[in-house]
Simulated scan of single mutants.
Amino acid sequence: MLLLPGWLNSGPGHWQTLWEGYFGDLRVEQHDWQQPRRGDWMARLDEVVMDLPRPALVAAHSLGCHLLAAWAAHSQHRAKVLGALLVAPPDPAQEDWPAALRPSWNQPVLQPLPFPSLVLHSTDDPFDRAGRAPALAQAWGARCVNLGTRGHVNAESGLGLWPQGRSYLRSLTEAG
């Protein structure tokens, strides 16, 4: 399992960090979490995927969702991804899109992913106030599930180890 955190990484109480510690999932460590450049992040993801001993599932959060979409549009190693859980993709068109993410992430890649994918989103996500996650899911060819009021589906959402997220992840392999 590969974990793709978003901007600023996933902190101690985040479900990705808990999955890494409990299940031994592999976090893709980026060289710069503060000023992420899309090309740099894509290159790092490609390095990690190339080194995988076998195909893996991916659990992306926030900006990690956009990273996976951009990477999948260009990488020759897409076959090493069995499926992707895309959690709380942010809206780059949002007025208060952070300056650190401009211009590198302003234009999301909007083409179907070449592997089974599932977008999970919340109705009160502060990084998707316009509710564009379902449109992103459609563009990516992903199934879409509304989790209700879960904020940014991060540590502040109080999910803990988030067994429901793990079930959604398993559903990707069962659907194929």
Results as ranks from 00 to 15, higher is better:
61 H>E: 02
62 S>Q: 07
62 S>D: 05
64 G>M: 02
64 G>H: 03
64 G>I: 00
64 G>N: 06
64 G>D: 02
65 C>L: 11
66 H>Y: 13
66 H>N: 08
66 H>K: 11
66 H>Q: 14
67 L>V: 13
67 L>K: 08
68 L>T: 05
68 L>R: 04
68 L>H: 03
68 L>F: 02
69 A>I: 06
69 A>Q: 03
70 A>E: 04
71 W>M: 07
72 A>I: 01
72 A>V: 04
72 A>W: 03
72 A>D: 01
72 A>F: 02
73 A>N: 02
73 A>K: 00
73 A>T: 04
74 H>D: 08
74 H>T: 12
74 H>I: 07
75 S>G: 09
77 H>F: 15
77 H>V: 13
77 H>P: 05
78 R>K: 14
79 A>L: 12
79 A>F: 13
79 A>W: 14
79 A>M: 12
81 V>K: 07
81 V>E: 01
81 V>N: 04
84 A>Q: 07
84 A>E: 03
84 A>D: 01
85 L>Q: 03
85 L>F: 09
85 L>H: 02
86 L>M: 12
86 L>F: 05
87 V>H: 01
88 A>Q: 07
90 P>E: 13
91 D>A: 04
92 P>C: 07
94 Q>G: 08
94 Q>W: 08
95 E>N: 12
95 E>H: 14
95 E>G: 14
95 E>W: 15
96 D>S: 14
97 W>I: 10
97 W>R: 03
97 W>C: 03
97 W>P: 00
99 A>N: 13
99 A>P: 11
99 A>H: 13
100 A>S: 08
101 L>K: 01
103 P>L: 09
104 S>G: 10
104 S>R: 09
105 W>Q: 02
106 N>T: 15
106 N>H: 10
107 Q>K: 15
107 Q>F: 08
108 P>W: 04
109 V>F: 07
112 P>W: 02
112 P>T: 09
112 P>R: 06
112 P>A: 13
112 P>F: 03
113 L>M: 06
114 P>G: 03
114 P>W: 08
116 P>C: 13
116 P>Q: 14
117 S>P: 03
117 S>E: 00
117 S>D: 00
118 L>Y: 02
118 L>F: 05
118 L>Q: 04
118 L>W: 01
119 V>G: 09
121 H>I: 13
122 S>H: 09
122 S>Y: 07
123 T>N: 14
124 D>A: 08
124 D>T: 10
124 D>Q: 11
124 D>H: 08
124 D>G: 03
126 P>D: 14
127 F>S: 10
130 A>M: 12
130 A>I: 13
130 A>P: 04
130 A>G: 04
131 G>V: 10
131 G>T: 09
131 G>Y: 15
132 R>Q: 15
132 R>W: 07
132 R>A: 07
133 A>N: 05
133 A>Y: 09
134 P>N: 05
135 A>V: 09
135 A>L: 11
136 L>G: 05
137 A>Q: 00
137 A>F: 00
138 Q>E: 15
139 A>I: 02
139 A>M: 01
140 W>S: 00
141 G>D: 00
142 A>R: 00
142 A>Y: 00
